[in-house]
Design a protein around this nucleic acid. Sequence first.
DNA 1: CAGTGGTCTAGACCACAAT
DNA 2: TTGTGGTCTAGACCACTGT
Lengths: 237, 237
Amino acid sequence: MEVKYKTIYQTLKDQIFSGTYPTNARIPDELSLCKEFDASRMTVKKALDLLVQEGIIYRRQGQGTFVLPYEEQDNLINIQESKLEGFTRSSRFRGAAKKYSFDLEFADETVARALDIPVGDPVYHIERIRYYHDKPYVWELTYMSPSQIPGVTDEVLNASIYQHIEKTLGLRIHSSKRILRAQPSTPKDQELLGLRPDEPVLEVEQIAYLDTGAPFEYSFSRHRYDRFKFSAFALRQ
Amino acid sequence: MEVKYKTIYQTLKDQIFSGTYPTNARIPDELSLCKEFDASRMTVKKALDLLVQEGIIYRRQGQGTFVLPYEEQDNLINIQESKLEGFTRSSRFRGAAKKYSFDLEFADETVARALDIPVGDPVYHIERIRYYHDKPYVWELTYMSPSQIPGVTDEVLNASIYQHIEKTLGLRIHSSKRILRAQPSTPKDQELLGLRPDEPVLEVEQIAYLDTGAPFEYSFSRHRYDRFKFSAFALRQ
DNA sequence: CAGTGGTCTAGACCACAAT
DNA sequence: TTGTGGTCTAGACCACTGT
């Protein structure tokens, strides 16, 4: 938080969630915030824009800036999409993970196209099952190319693959694209996640990119339908 | 597009998708764009920030601004979440719709809580089935309170409920929250969408809000699992 | 009218990358 | 060193809202 607008953003966010500015309250106008944080109006605006993007506040010309109602928590795992924290939040939620398999395979056409490598090139293939309250909720299949991400070992996987990529290899993760779909469960889904044949999974297909634009990770996460939801907030324009 | 930064945003976006700046190309630096559009650097930045948010470009300190690869289209209906167009795009995609039922009911507990009205209050209950290439792909159930949104008729529904709300009633739609889940299909899903019993639906639950903060619409859209996907883009921070 | 947010400017200095 | 984007300022004028 070395940057001023992020400090203002975080301070206001903390104040909102700690109840200093409760739901539907009006927060101080921009000029007051400028004085409070010793910042220019553009800087305060930038902080407020972040909060608007996350659906935490909204602003009305001529009236002021107001705190939006926010959600109580429930028992579902909730991936909240937000531009500021999207990538990290979803990869941050983990729960206990069990490595199910880890080997080297030849890339089939789908994997090769996603990772932008030739068909038949070797790829790491990692499968994990993650648990929440001691019950399985997701089966993850991950593919990475050793030519892009070398040195993946059991130890690396047990620690953090992202650490390995960014710290050890000195690469930078840039972005990810995700596609969500409902799917009938396969017999393997049913076995691993404890589903009945008529119970579906929510599949999240993800391609993650390095800052060079190269895709480095292709993954499928097959979630129990009753333990995973995805929420999104959209402002009318 | 009366505003300068939106004009710059739209012009660059058009140029990118028309091939003036192809995938991975570097677009002109900020000072050049300032001259080209006769704008200050802050204004150009604001336009570029929008494109970054939508996952169209990315920027690298010391290097420049680059066009990200973008998706080819497939046959699935694709709801792209983006802060700029999120609300409208998804309510813009329609296809032919058939009204399945339209009546007045007493709000049950779920609907009452979502719409923030007392249990037992009357609510409009609208069901529609939407078609894409002459085949059903979604069954929509919508609840609205006549005390908030009066005057809903067959004619209004056949035209546009959003027009009615904003033009006729003079209310302003502010935002929406959506939750996505996979669900087993019910016998009714199977009948309406032509699914087998083992085939699931992707359910999108949505609450839409007026600018007063009041929820005015509660809806469930149950999509055929094989004709709907939801995609999201996340930047690493 | 006064108070609010929305846009825009013309600079400034900094951080980072390539040369 | 040069060129790039990142942050920040101290104003200005405009658009909208409520009084």
